Computed example of a mutant assay.
Amino acid sequence: MAALGHTFPFYAGPKPNFPMVTTLAIIITIFMISLVTFIIILPGIRGKMRLFWILRVVTSLFIGAVILAMNFSSEWSVGQVSTNTSYKAFSSECISTAVGLQIGLGGVNITLTGTPVQQLNETGCYNKESTWRLGENYAEEYAKALEKGLPDPVLYLAEKFTPHSPCGLHGQYRLAGHYTSATLWVAFLCWLLADVMLSMPVLATGVFQLLGLLFFSTAMSLTLPCPLRLGTATLHTHCGPAYWITLTTGLLCVLLGLAMVVAHRLQAFFSTVGEDPVLEWDPEEGGLLSPRYRSTADSPEPQDIPLSEASSEVPCEESDCALE
């Protein structure tokens, strides 16, 4: 229609909104409700433990919300450019527009906003989201976009991520998204365990987040340079907010985990200084002898045992006695 007709491309239905707003809003709402619930019961905690629990709960909820939200975010790699480009294929009509590209773990999102919005008797405001998650067919979604007659810049960028594109962007980002998403889910599981045991699972949470970043960074570095030219400008991508937020949260988890390990070691070290191991009978462990530590203050003082007079006399040999 866009190539043969004399009308400009349009959507058959209403234009969709940004695809990830609803998901992120639900995640933020759930964690905010959890935080408000904790604040309600906070007056029941007395003394210095109140400050400890505030820091622990706020930090824990922040880490969990970041891991879950970034898994569904589409801003791992982003780019935007303002240019004058054609509005439809095989047409010399150009519009002034801002084109944005957001690459996530599960797909790519392309936005087009006219500057001004109303140009050529059209409302230049489009948003196209295509996914490559398991069970989704990116090529089929691209074919439907061609049937709808989307603007030429949107179709141009979407074509670069098709499986048969010579750029090879689809295979690299699809595999990286799968592995990164899987490691983030493992990190989320470690976060759940960290709520029960605030020690090693925190360290594991950070390690898996950093491992996911390694997978995504590897895909970006191994991808061959593929120029994205839109009119007179070229669109360049770079690491987005989701990447840097995940990196910051992963480093925070690693530091917290190391701090917990060091604190645990120091506590164990100072609790055993000046204590002597004593074997005691422990009926709860099946009657086995298990070491118990007793401080030097509780240890009995050494007692001097006097020797008896008989034992203090040294017996002489028969030859010596005979000489006497």
Rank of each mutant, 00 (worst) to 15 (best):
8 F>K: 12
256 L>W: 08
49 M>I: 09
272 T>I: 09
293 Y>S: 08
133 R>C: 05
323 L>P: 05
238 H>N: 05
239 C>Y: 06
62 F>D: 02
134 L>A: 04
108 V>T: 13
244 W>H: 03
301 E>R: 11
90 F>N: 15
226 C>T: 09
323 L>A: 15
268 A>Y: 03
175 L>N: 07
180 T>E: 04
183 T>L: 10
47 G>P: 14
110 I>N: 00
129 E>D: 15
184 L>N: 02
229 R>E: 14
225 P>N: 02
298 D>M: 05
9 P>F: 04
304 D>R: 01
67 I>V: 14
152 D>R: 00
92 S>V: 02
301 E>G: 15
87 Y>L: 15
301 E>I: 09
144 K>D: 14
232 T>E: 15
252 L>R: 02
51 L>Q: 10
72 F>H: 07
53 W>R: 11
257 G>D: 02
276 D>Y: 11
91 S>C: 12
279 L>Q: 05
181 S>H: 05
93 E>T: 13
268 A>E: 08
189 L>V: 05
171 G>E: 10
30 I>V: 15
139 A>G: 13
251 L>S: 10
226 C>R: 06
249 T>F: 00
280 E>R: 05
98 A>D: 11
257 G>H: 02
246 T>N: 01
147 E>Q: 09
298 D>H: 09
298 D>L: 00
277 P>R: 13
224 L>A: 10
157 L>G: 03
61 L>P: 08
272 T>K: 11
171 G>R: 00
52 F>S: 13
120 L>T: 04
57 V>H: 05
278 V>R: 07
66 V>H: 08
20 M>P: 11
153 P>G: 06
195 D>R: 00
65 A>C: 15
120 L>Y: 01
289 L>T: 08
161 F>Q: 10
313 E>N: 05
149 G>V: 00
99 V>F: 00
16 P>F: 04
175 L>R: 09
217 S>E: 12
65 A>N: 07
179 Y>G: 11
234 T>Q: 11
140 E>Q: 08
152 D>M: 09
297 A>S: 11
172 Q>L: 15
277 P>N: 10
141 E>F: 02
289 L>V: 10
302 P>F: 12
50 R>E: 12
167 C>Q: 07
54 I>M: 10
155 L>C: 10
203 L>Q: 10
51 L>I: 14
142 Y>C: 09
177 G>A: 02
23 T>P: 03
214 L>M: 11
67 I>W: 03
171 G>K: 12
54 I>W: 06
229 R>D: 13
298 D>W: 02
285 E>S: 13
294 R>Y: 01
247 L>C: 10
274 G>T: 04
148 K>R: 09
67 I>M: 04
38 F>K: 09
66 V>C: 11
111 T>S: 14
108 V>W: 02
118 Q>K: 14
72 F>M: 13
228 L>M: 11
23 T>C: 14
316 C>T: 15
18 F>K: 12
11 Y>T: 03
220 M>E: 12
22 T>G: 14
44 G>H: 07
52 F>H: 04
243 Y>V: 03
259 A>S: 12
33 I>T: 02
11 Y>P: 12
29 T>R: 15
241 P>K: 02
64 G>C: 13
92 S>M: 06
205 T>A: 08
13 G>I: 00
164 H>E: 15
39 I>A: 10
79 G>F: 08
